[in-house]
Nucleic acid binder design. Structure first.
Lengths: 190, 190
DNA sequence: CGACTAACGCAAACCCTTAGCTTTTGGTCG
DNA sequence: CGACCAAAAGCTAAGGGTTTGCGTTAGTCG
């Protein structure tokens, strides 16, 4: 999801694509900390001023790339029942996000984001995945919490600990969060 | 909590204090976005290279200052019972953290923090406050959840939404989180 | 009290950032 | 289809933030 979609066809689109590609390529070649706007520009075959004008800042460019990277590429697998689906999703979510690179992407997404658009997009991705899982469960006739409850009880604790307490996170924690949530869904909250 | 406490007495301490003071003063005078290392250095009566060597980066310096700013200055007020204590604390926490300046401080604390020391400190502050509240409740003979549960059920959802979905947050949400938590503390989780 | 060393000041080189101006390009209207 | 217009990219130079080596200062320890 890029900052601006003005003039979607033609040169603008090509420039944006090649800049994004350059960022991803250089990230794995020289590392995230060695990235600079002129370096990206050279690799993308563009002048630095173009990047500064379109993204304003290296932070904002990285934020854009990070959000793309954090977009889930496949729908969550159907494991047969809600508990298994949510558990598997939470474990995978934790795996991807708690890794060093995952945390870097999250921080990038949060960082160069004046209005919170990119951060909101990340949250929306998770909500979409959960919505698919809950929809399946509902079709099966299972009793399901709503998306916001899953966000509060599973996604938020995972993300909070990833950001503020990276130590000692593992699949056990993710599984427990799901178990505690599903053990109380018969209550009539909210 | 400063980055390094080597040689705590004498010049190092004075330099650190005057740099931190300069950051705080300039933040209110020229705004956070106008801060630069040379500007802070001049105000602090220090050369820029000193700041670069000790903090490495403007982000890391701001992260240090942000953590100081996020440290609670007083113990939570005693309102008579656990529900009232937790509710009042959660509302105040949301108030302070969800404001524009609060979010800026949180982001600063998270960003310039390679090893997660500052972020962990922020989390520890909240945990300390909650521990005081829970300790009082236990003394009264009330049935209390443990700190980690409160972090998962109240702090994490608040912080997640502050960071990823800043829109539409208010005291109602904070109160509901506490009410939902205390309505289920009789379960034997974990 | 004297040696040692971490930390700071100084200054120059580097290169990232910004801004004004020109040129190219893609959309649009006659 | 061709000409106009505005958006976006190229170019360049000035400004300033960042880095680094070296000399100096000031805590610390024997």
């Amino acid at each position: 999801m890029s900052r601006q979609m003005v003039r979607p066809g033609g040169r603008s689109a090509r420039v944006q694509a090649s800049v994004h590609d350059a960022v991803r390529a250089l990230m794995s070649e020289v590392g995230r900390d060695a990235l600079t706007v002129p370096l990206v520009a050279q690799r993308a075959g563009v002048t630095p001023s173009t990047i500064y004008r379109r993204w304003g800042d290296l932070k904002e460019l990285l934020s854009d790339v990070a959000v793309e990277r954090l977009r889930p590429d496949t729908a969550p697998r159907d494991q047969g029942d809600l508990s298994a689906d949510l558990t598997a999703w939470a474990e995978q979510f934790l795996d991807e996000m708690a890794s060093a690179s995952g945390r870097a992407y999250i921080r990038d997404a949060l960082l160069g984001d004046p209005v919170g658009r990119n951060a909101g997009q990340c949250s929306a991705y998770a909500a979409e995945q959960i919505d698919v899982i809950l929809g399946r469960a509902t079709e099966r006739g299972e009793d399901t919490p709503d998306v916001e409850t899953v966000v509060d009880r599973v996604v938020a604790p995972l993300m909070y600990r990833i950001l503020f307490r990276p130590a000692g996170l593992d699949g056990t924690y993710a599984r427990r969060l799901v178990a505690e949530l599903l053990g109380t869904t018969d209550r009539d909250d909210r």
